[in-house]
């Protein structure tokens, strides 16, 4: 095949996929908002995504905060700016690392599980069974997951920010010679509401992306166990890449603020 034609075909396929995913998301949101609502399903997803992701996100946050304190101290000591460590830790965590790392962790834990669960439901005809039992899969399966991800990731990131800052505080006060009062004072002095808000907006977008990729890939999976496995891998990989792409786009949007 002509190389140009191949590139064109690939591009068309990519655009078609984007359109199909966008339609899938809009249909799910539209039907989900129109009701009937399934509060038990929504609550289950919120617990699954929020509560059960806390340990992995918390661990990631505390070690990230600790490493950040050590590394920024090493760097800033070269031009005698060690006092900026607390500020660097809190701003990096709230604006950037908190949402991105939590998003990636949740993509690995929740996105994969969603794709596997929905994929299994698809290949064992459970999704078709739902349809025959007067239950719209978009309302019953997809919307609660999208809502759960979009609402819970900001909360997870808020907790991760606090745990991460605590990690930096522990290293700062036990290894780097900061007094607890100075560290906390410098953390709060330069932290702006905007930093936290930007991080939480990012988290909501990442939560939506992770659950959308998990749902889309699971819902579309075909061909038995192998198909479900491939869908799970695709869900994690596409969500991770999209988190990084959207992180840049959102950072660009909020850059001047």
């Amino acid at each position: 095949m002509n190389p140009l034609r191949r590139i064109g075909a690939g591009l068309l396929d990519f655009c078609q996929q984007i359109g199909a995913i966008a339609t899938f998301a809009l249909v799910s949101i539209g039907r989900g908002l129109a009701g009937p609502w399934y509060p038990a399903q929504i609550l289950r997803q919120m617990i699954d995504i929020g509560y059960y992701s806390l340990p992995v996100v918390g661990l990631t946050a505390i070690f990230t905060g600790m490493v950040l304190a050590l590394q920024s101290y090493t760097g800033f000591a070269r031009f005698e700016a060690e006092s900026a460590v607390a500020t660097i830790v809190v701003v990096s965590l709230t604006r950037e690392l908190g949402p991105v790392l939590a998003g990636l962790m949740v993509a690995g834990r929740v996105g994969a599980a969603m794709a596997a669960e929905l994929g299994t439901m698809r290949v064992t005809e459970q999704i078709d069974a739902l349809t025959t039992l007067s239950t719209d899969p978009h309302r019953y399966l997809i919307f609660p997951r999208l809502l759960g991800g979009t609402l819970m990731l900001p909360l997870l990131v808020l907790v991760a920010d606090i745990i991460g800052v605590f990690g930096g505080f522990v290293v700062g006060t036990t290894k780097l010679g900061f007094s607890p009062y100075t560290y906390i004072d410098q953390t709060l002095q330069y932290l702006e509401t905007q930093d936290v808000v930007v991080g939480l907006v990012k988290a909501a977008v990442f939560g939506f992306i992770v659950t959308l990729m998990g749902c889309w890939n699971g819902y579309q999976s075909r061909g038995g166990a192998q198909g479900v496995g491939a869908a799970t891998t695709r869900a994690v990989v596409t969500a991770s890449i999209m988190i990084l792409v959207f992180d840049y786009i959102l950072t660009e949007i909020f850059f001047s603020r």
Binding site: T124, Q126, D128, A129, T132
Partner: peptide, 26 residues
């Protein structure tokens, strides 16, 4: 669809729900 009930090849039971919830789901 309101007029139709279907038995699927593998049963297609919802594995997150107990039997009674499966049966009364519709």
């Amino acid at each position: 669809r309101h007029k139709v009930g279907m038995l699927f090849q593998g049963g297609a039971l919802f594995d997150s729900l107990p039997v009674w919830e499966n049966v009364s789901f519709g």
